[in-house]
Structure formats: C-alpha cells, structure tokens
Amino acid sequence: MDDRSRVGVRRTYERIGDHFSKTREFAWPEVESFVDDADGAGTALDVGCGNGRHAELLADVADRVLGLDASRTLLCEAQDRIGPRVSLLQGDATRLPLRADSVDLAIYVATLHHLPTAADRRASLDELARVLRPDGRALVSAWSTAHDRFDAPADAETGFDTTVDWTLPGGETVPRFYHIYAPAEFERDVAASGLTRRSMELSSGNCYAVVEPERKVPY
C-alpha cells in the first residue's frame, strides 16, 4: 500500500477509523483552552475533524460548525457522535472546498503531520489562511521531535518522515505516515505561509501555534 500519499493516508483511516475513533474519546486540553478563550464565533471549522471530539467543543461557542475530514469512515463516526450540531464535509486539507474569508474560528490539530510532502503541508496552511476572515483565528498543531518517543534532538532544524503502526483489535498492524516536525521547522512553515502566529508553544510533545491570517491587502 502506498501510504506516502494523501490518498494513502485517507485509505489508512478508512481501514482503522472505527477502532481509532473509540480511542479518541476525549478532547485535548490545549484545544479546550483555545476554544474557551474564543468568546463566540459565527462560523467555526475543524480541519481533520476525525470523530468530531473537537468539533463538539466548537459547537458550544459558534453559531455554525463545519467538520472536514478526508476519511468517510471517520465522518460516519462523527455523524453518530455529534449528529446535526456539525455540518460534515469530506475534503482534502490542501484544497479546502470553502470560500475565502468565511471562517471566524478554526482548529487544525493532529492533521498537518499526516500530509506526506512539505509542499502539501505548506499548501494546507495557505488554504487555512485563505478561508479565515481577516479577524479570524486558528489553532494549528503537529507532532514534534520534542515528544519522548523520538530520539531526534528537539533543537534540530528539520524533522523527519516516519510510519507509526496502528494495531487493530485482531493484532494486525497498519502503518500510518507521519512527518514529525522539529519545532524550528514548524515555526518556519507557519511563517512562510499566509498565516501569522500570535503565540507558539510545545505541549505534550506537540507544537501548537495560535495563528491569524496575514493582513490581507485590499485591491
């Protein structure tokens, strides 16, 4: 199986999605605090929404929530979990099917690191910038070399590609592609995109950035 392509990553989650979803019951505290800090939003978006555990949080603060994922298996899990509170879309993070300047609040967590090429990852950050309103804000996260399970030095300039096996209940393992970000590289990719960071932190082995779109110059 070619898992080093976006369609490969999608197929992986079509295969493991049912089981994966059962292990992703709870929201991450970093996401909870980002959403708590947002005092109301018109339209919120979760890119890579998985089973909807974070889109569910957005539904408490936004008038309308969109959950986008490449995997239909995961979207079906989200449909069961959060039902009509969130509008679900199957789509690709590097080519968002959303209009420019349409989103007030977005989360893009634990998804960027599944995109196989640097060009894909940068394109997805530019797409996030495009769909955010000028005063919109987003939380972006990716797995990093600072995590205990990796030997790579946390101060490396660039991260590395790897696969991490997912073990299904029957014992079968399915490899999942990851690009593990060096924190410096994460910072560079965000800076090179149409996003500007407001803050950045390392937490639980992940890089987190709160970002907003670069000032959009009116024509």
Partner: peptide, 15 residues
C-alpha cells in the same frame, strides 16, 4: 455528507 474530495483523492483514483 458531501464528498468534496478532488477526483485524485477518491476511491476510483489510481494509487
């Protein structure tokens, strides 16, 4: 659920 994946990301796309 609308499937807004570009054609090259769909199931029928060659791997």
């Amino acid at each position: 659920i609308p499937n807004l994946l570009p054609p090259d990301m769909r199931d029928e796309a060659p791997a």
